Computed example of a mutant assay.
Amino acid sequence: MTSTLERHMVTIGGLRVGHGPAVVIGGRVSLRPHRGQVDAREALGERATLVEPYSAADLPAIAALADAVVVGATWTRDIPLVRAAAGLGLPVVVERRPSASVEEWVGLAGYCAAEGNDQVVLCEGGRLDLGVLRAARAASGRPVLADVSRDPGLAAAAVAAGADGLVVAGPGGSGDSGGAGGAGASGRADGAADVRAAEEAVTLVGALLRPESPATLAECREAIDRVDAALATLLERRAALAGVVQRLKPVGGFAGRDLARERALVARMAARAPQLGEERLAAVMNAVIEAGLHLAEERARR
């Protein structure tokens, strides 16, 4: 059966949204704060990824300089502008008004598609409602972005909820003072840190929770790299917890190993990884446990 993600994939600035791993899109530019008093080309200056117009007059510049046009949360009821934006031929990112239902949000995306542009992506921003994000993704079959510019701490939760990508203001990003997110709304200055947090979220949480079906050797290696990054993070955390255990046990170190507990641990893991099975997992976990114990001993000698 063809998956929802395979049926609906949109390319934005070279990033495939809705296919394979979650992505990070740096920067959402809104022309609304200029209120039409500054030429759109002058306001943009250079190529941008996501751009929201103030009016139809901004659309030619967006067509020339943007990778996608944003139907901003503040003007989703301006149907003539929605139709004009969809008619550019660029991917369309449809934000949700805070009061809009899933049906209204998905319906507006369908309206853009009815204009002859099926490159439509949904975007949840502002005060993120991750339940609505998940429901819209399931109901529409379209990719869904989460704009975490206001609160980058929600990046991991958004990926866990099924977001196909994260929008962050990024270093020097220009945000939106009246829409669903962006540096202007959040007032955050550390855009580089926000991008790193988003990248960690799509790498680590995505590796654990997001199914992938790589079609090429390069894609397969990239997927393995994400899984390995998640493994390294979890192994480091396990080693730290093992060090705490050594301090709490009456008999620490290798002499304090509980072989019965280790066998039970491997059996539980084998239930989650039946293809590896207990014998292979036992060898892996023995190496992991020994590495943690060696590390605990080294730290104790310092």
Rank of each mutant, 00 (worst) to 15 (best):
A283L: 15
L65M: 15
A56D: 12
D147G: 09
R268G: 09
A136N: 02
R261H: 11
V132S: 06
L90N: 01
A146G: 02
V245G: 01
I79Q: 11
T49V: 14
A207I: 03
E103W: 00
M1W: 08
A271W: 00
S99D: 14
G243H: 04
D39V: 00
V251T: 11
R210E: 02
D118R: 10
R77T: 15
A85S: 15
V94K: 04
S213P: 03
G110Q: 08
V70R: 01
G253P: 03
M285F: 13
S149Q: 10
D194C: 12
R28Y: 01
A64P: 00
V266D: 05
R280G: 12
A156E: 10
A230M: 01
G181K: 02
A185R: 14
H8G: 15
A185D: 12
A287N: 05
E236Q: 13
E42S: 13
A192C: 11
G27F: 02
E104Y: 06
L81H: 13
I289E: 09
V82G: 11
A40K: 02
P274N: 03
G253V: 00
L248V: 04
L241W: 08
E115I: 03
G18Y: 07
H34I: 04
R301C: 06
V70G: 10
D67I: 05
V10Y: 07
A282W: 15
G18F: 04
G252N: 02
A68G: 13
G182L: 06
H34K: 04
P211H: 08
G184T: 07
A183Y: 07
E298F: 04
A40T: 12
E95N: 15
R299Y: 05
S55Q: 07
G125F: 06
R137I: 06
D151F: 02
G141L: 10
